[in-house]
Amino acid sequence: MKKYTKKEYGKMVERSAPKTSMFQNLLWAFFIGGAICVVGQLISQYFRNRGWSIENVASGTSIIMVFLGALFTGLGLYDKLAKFAGAGTIVPITGFANAIVSPAMEFKREGYILGVAGKMFVVAGPVLVYGITTSVIAGVIYYLIR
């Protein structure tokens, strides 16, 4: 076989590889992600109408949405929806629930300690680490410039 450099071959692959349809993906993400947010808004409105404080409405809505994300993951429906929605199902808080519940389910066979507990954060762990770190840095900056 004649010699191909890695660069040459990389270009060859790039020319032939199928591309994702950005427009189609954005539409799916917008509508399914949007629908999840509408559900969240309805729940939040319900609590508000019952006269809850702003903080309690936020907590209550998050709790219900996380529960729904976990429930649909357990029923095996969330990943089917995500196949089309992409970022539309990852970005809302239900996606966070999915990222924690799915490894917990998957690794139950390795036991409750090293399996469920040990693997629960394999997907969501980096989000937590960098999310919390970023919020601490933002907090410090806010404290200094206030």
């Binding site: 995500a82 196949k83 999915n98 799915s102 997907v123």
Partner: peptide, 17 residues
């Protein structure tokens, strides 16, 4: 899947390749 990629119920998208 569980060894090389993600848990089965995780909502990720497969790339076109």
């Amino acid at each position: 899947e569980r060894q090389f990629r993600f848990p089965l119920a995780y909502g990720g998208q497969r790339t076109p390749t």
